[in-house]
Design a protein around this nucleic acid. Structure first.
Lengths: 246, 246
DNA sequence: CGAGCACTTGATCGCTTTCAATAGCTGTGG
DNA sequence: CCACAGCTATTGAAAGCGATCAAGTGCTCG
């Protein structure tokens, strides 16, 4: 259950200090949060939470990637959230978990026992406001995703996913044109399929097709170079200028 | 722009008083809200808000039904939200509308100018908390919907939509078994298709199939009787016991 | 070296879309 | 009153895309 090489951190040097649910907290509020927080670590592949289980804590992803998935009785599964560092897990005011949370990579979570956190939130508008803001962002992301699931072709779905991941890993290759991007896929083909409502075979085929057509370059299975982000966004069926970023 | 037969209401007799964003407000807070509120009415088919437009107000649906839709350049459209009475429209802290809002039936909205509402929200935790709660509910609904869009067959999609609508119009037929339901579809076949990521022809075919198989009865195009809700939920691929209601 | 896993590729099947025709309803105007 | 336009919905036939079934590749690890 523990990755041996993680060391608990003071909030003021925490990597997600300014993006997580605590982003707006002042020093006093941080002290309070600090007093009820603890860390948990999970190995890649581990289930963090089972849907339906009682949740004793809420928390933030500090490092690593986890997924939120729903499963039907016959095994069909759909990813409904991709949890990156700073994303919040759990719902204040609800006891049972609604979704499975699964660690895709090794994950470190900053956890708060649910009850004390809920009480603290009552007294601390900074936390409630930040949580509202984050929830509204998630809702927007979910709705963007609904368009992908409902109306895009397999090729567009793959291109959409790649461009989402590329935009988050904003690490432009030095020396190359600013619209080129290089990154590592944090998901298996199967996880991509669960994200996009496809089968893993279709994911594989469309990845190959995008490679063949020069939209992406593949180094091994996971290391990806996008020579022209504009081209990728066109393939995704989005405005090449980035849509809502205007 | 105006349906002539609507009369502005005092908050304390408002039909959505206890479900909308004002649900938790006390008398004093209601007075403040009252001072910045005004009503707007829209006719069926009218566009309430265009995606990208500047939003000068936020507000609640008082009566009628509206939809939130996204459209791609080539015209493909996906519904991303179904707005029923008490649902909130607009996002505090953002200027531009992210989605098209279209009145499906005649709609009455209780509007607040955005700036004053945002300021009031800063001072009024009751409003902020209620909005958080509502947003979390919407996020859950969106994620449920993602499973429908990504993994269900056309038949299951239709059954899912019907069971969602049936559950909201909780008006059991007198005299019949409690698991029978009767309701009017508030959506055209095309709107249903946009909701479910299908074509309207497929919607029509699956409606006919569900009728042929006795899962639903159709009276005209829109009036629907579900003799056995359990059967409908099975067709939707959900647990027949109602899933998260346990 | 062989087992296990992630991924790729091929062949075929079937569901949903697409294209097209028709039905039913409402409102308008001769 | 009927004819007709305009709209929503239904139904049919054919096409296409992604799923399914089935090998096969490449890699890591024991």
């Amino acid at each position: 259950m523990n990755t041996p090489n993680f060391k608990p951190t003071k909030c003021d040097v925490c990597p997600i200090r300014h993006r997580a649910v605590c982003a707006r907290c002042n020093a006093d509020e941080l002290v309070e949060l600090d007093s009820i927080k603890y860390y948990r670590t999970y190995e890649a592949g581990q289930t963090v939470i089972w849907a339906g289980d009682k949740m004793s804590f809420v928390g933030s992803v500090v490092s690593g990637i986890a997924t939120l998935t729903q499963t039907m009785e016959d095994g069909r599964t759909q990813m409904v959230g991709l949890l990156l560092p700073s994303d919040f897990v759990g719902r204040p005011g609800r006891d049972g978990a609604a979704y499975n949370v699964i660690a895709t990579t090794d994950v470190v979570m900053c956890c708060f026992r649910k009850k004390p956190f809920e009480e603290l939130m009552e007294r601390t508008p900074h936390i409630a406001h930040r949580l509202l803001e984050m929830t509204l962002d998630e809702l927007d992301a979910a709705r963007e995703w609904m368009l992908v699931l409902g109306r895009k072709t397999a090729r567009e779905k793959i291109a959409s996913l790649l461009s989402i991941i590329a935009r988050r890993n904003t690490a432009p290759t030095p020396g190359e044109s600013s619209d080129a991007m290089v990154f590592d896929l944090p998901l298996t083909r199967e996880a991509m399929a669960d994200y996009l409502g496809l089968t893993l075979e279709t994911v594989s085929r469309q990845m190959s097709a995008l490679k063949r057509d020069g939209v992406i370059q593949l180094d091994g299975k996971r290391h990806i170079t996008v020579p022209d982000m504009g081209r990728l966004m066109e393939e995704a069926g989005d405005d090449s200028d980035g849509g809502f970023l205007i």
